[in-house]
Amino acid sequence: MQIIRFADLKPQPWRNGGGVTRELASHRGDASAAAASSGDGAWDWRVSIADVTSAGEYSAFPGTERVLTVVEGELLLLAVDGTEHPLEKYRPFRFPGGAASSSALPTGDIRNLNVMAREGAFKAYTSIVELSKKRAHPVFEGQLGILLQGQATVSPGNTGGLGNASSLGSAESGSGGQDSPPVALGRYDAVVGSDSQTPEILGRGFLAVVSIDPVTD
C-alpha cells in the first residue's frame, strides 16, 4: 500500500511564473523525449495540485487534455479560447491543454486539482465521492484517491502501486496484510490504487478519485 504525503511534496513554479504546483504522480513513457524537446512536459500523464493566488494566463500544453477541479476556494472563472466558464468547487472541467486559457479569481485564492493526459495515449477522469464510515471506498489499479476534506483512514483490502507510474512523489510503502491497522490520511494525501490488496478508505469528507486509462486502438 502506497501513500503520497502532500506535506512532503515540494512546490514547483509554473512555467509561466503565474503560480506553484505540487506533483502527486506522473508517468514518463514513449512521449518523454519528444515532449522534453518541445518543452510541453516530459510525461504522458500528470496529477498535481496547484495554488492560484493571482489572475492570469495558464501555461499551454499542446497535445494534452486537462481535467481541472477547484478543491479549495469558491469560484474560478476559466477562459478557454475566449469562452468563459465559471468553475465551482468539486465540479471537474475538461478542456484542451493546448488552448489559450486564463483565470480570474472573483472570490479570492483557490487551489486546483489538475490532471493532464497526452492525447492518443491516455484518457484521464476525475470524480468526487463522499466518504462513509460504514462502507469503504476502494482504490483500484490505475487510480489515485486524494482526500480533499474531512478525516479518513486507509487499509489494505482483500484483493501495490499505480501500474503505469514512474514517478509517485514522496510515497510511503507498506507490505502489511488485511489485518494491518488503518493509516490516517491528511488533507490532500493520495492513496495509490492496486488490484492486489486494494486499498480501502473509510471516513467522513470528500475524496477525489483520479483514473488514468490507457488508450487502446
Rank of each mutant, 00 (worst) to 15 (best):
I3N: 09
F6G: 07
F6R: 08
A7Q: 14
D8N: 15
D8L: 14
K10R: 15
P11C: 02
P11L: 02
Q12D: 12
Q12R: 13
Q12W: 12
P13I: 08
W14H: 04
W14E: 02
R15Y: 10
R15L: 11
N16G: 06
N16C: 06
G17E: 11
G18E: 12
G19V: 00
G19A: 01
V20S: 05
V20C: 03
T21S: 06
E23R: 01
L24M: 02
L24W: 01
L24Y: 01
L24P: 00
A25K: 00
S26N: 10
S26A: 12
S26P: 04
H27Q: 10
H27M: 07
R28A: 13
G29S: 05
D30K: 05
D30P: 07
A31T: 12
S32Y: 14
S32Q: 14
S32T: 15
A33F: 04
A34V: 11
A34S: 12
A35F: 12
A35S: 15
A36I: 03
A36E: 09
A36W: 04
S37I: 14
S38I: 12
S38D: 15
G39K: 03
D40V: 13
D40K: 11
G41V: 04
A42G: 04
A42D: 09
W43H: 07
W43E: 07
D44F: 03
R46N: 04
S48I: 00
V52E: 02
V52S: 03
V52K: 03
T53N: 13
A55G: 12
A55P: 08
A55N: 10
G56R: 03
G56M: 04
S59G: 09
F61L: 11
F61N: 06
F61P: 06
F61S: 05
P62I: 07
P62K: 08
G63S: 08
T64K: 12
T64N: 11
R66V: 03
V67A: 10
V67Y: 05
L68V: 08
L68H: 03
V70Q: 02
V71R: 00
E72S: 11
E72Y: 09
G73Q: 03
G73A: 04
G73L: 02
E74T: 12
L75Q: 07
L75C: 03
L76G: 04
L77F: 09
L78I: 08
A79D: 15
A79W: 15
A79G: 14
V80Q: 04
V80R: 03
G82V: 04
T83A: 15
T83D: 15
T83S: 15
T83R: 15
E84G: 09
H85K: 11
L87N: 01
L87T: 03
E88W: 14
E88A: 14
K89P: 06
Y90L: 06
Y90I: 02
R91A: 14
